[in-house]
């Protein structure tokens, strides 16, 4: 068949892309640089300075949650990869089950546990311990992120670790490397693709979340996602909302660009 025919076959999809991916982003940019009457303005962009704290908090929470996920997830993925092949299947399934439950329900479950009159505090009271205030703290929000996105960290790490030759670790140890040295010089470089995709898959949703911060932070810890959601669903200031979204998008794309220089994300991603 002629090349032109093949381009023709994919043309409907290319058109779909232009109309429903490129055009929407162009419209976001359009809204970000115009006011309600459609006239050009810088106001929305300069209005972003109001949200410096929110942006800084989102990035900070996102980084903390991602680092915790990595610290918990890396050894977990290593354990998975070292288990018997039949056990590995079960372990992967077990980590996937919570992932398939809607994240709203998972965050809600955490809220029910953490509330001042919630399940944990009732249990503490029943054994005579003083209540612990957990809900509406920054710790609760970060816990919610870690709880929700841990599987997204473990799965790509696990994929890249199954490709890791165990003999290399043994060789490193035989040649006198300490456990830490083996980790730093052998394991981490060889699993970098999994680390990069794991970090991406936890950081992106953590930075842009809004439900988790609403439920577990009680509105005290507004994140970028909350501000965007508010502008579109309650405040109806689409122009300001668009400028914040544009900023978030540019920020995430920059992060991904930088991250991709550290590892080849073609492997061990969502598809694996």
């Amino acid at each position: 068949m002629k090349n032109r025919t093949y381009n023709g076959i994919s043309a409907p999809y290319a058109l779909w892309c232009v109309v429903f991916i490129v055009a929407p982003l162009a419209i976001v940019a359009y809204y970000a640089f115009t006011d309600k009457t459609g006239a050009f303005t810088w106001d929305n962009i300069s209005g972003l300075s109001m949200y410096t704290d929110t942006i800084a908090r989102s990035v900070y929470f996102g980084i903390v949650a991602t680092v915790i996920c990595l610290i918990i997830g890396y050894p977990l993925a290593y354990c998975f990869a070292r288990a018997k092949v039949s056990t590995q299947k079960i372990l992967v399934m077990l980590i996937m089950v919570p992932m398939w439950m809607n994240f709203l329900l998972r965050a809600y479950a955490i809220m029910v546990l953490f509330e001042d009159t919630g399940i944990i505090n009732n249990m503490l009271a029943s054994i005579g311990l003083p209540p612990v205030h957990m809900i509406n703290t920054s710790g609760a929000v970060i816990f919610g992120m870690v709880y929700n996105y841990l599987p997204f960290m473990v799965l790509p790490l696990y994929t890249s670790m199954t490709k890791l030759d165990g003999k290399l670790i043994e060789a490193a140890r035989d040649l006198g490397a300490t456990g830490f040295q083996t980790l730093r010089d052998v394991m981490i470089p060889l699993t970098s693709s999994g680390i990069v995709s794991g970090i991406t898959m936890v950081f992106v949703p953590s930075v842009s979340t809004f439900y988790i911060s609403q439920k577990l932070g009680g509105g005290k810890y507004t994140l970028i996602g909350d501000v965007i959601e508010m502008q579109f669903q309650t405040a109806y200031n689409y122009n300001l909302g668009a400028s914040i979204s544009l900023l978030l998008m540019i920020f995430i794309l920059l992060c991904l660009f930088v991250m991709n220089r550290f590892g080849d994300t073609d492997e061990g991603g969502v598809m694996a």
């Binding site: 929407p24 996602g225 995430i252 794309l253």
Partner: peptide
Amino acid sequence: IPMMNPDIVTGISMMLL
């Protein structure tokens, strides 16, 4: 693009369209 973009950005971009 939709795989890299945060869902919230994809969502509002389509809503605005």
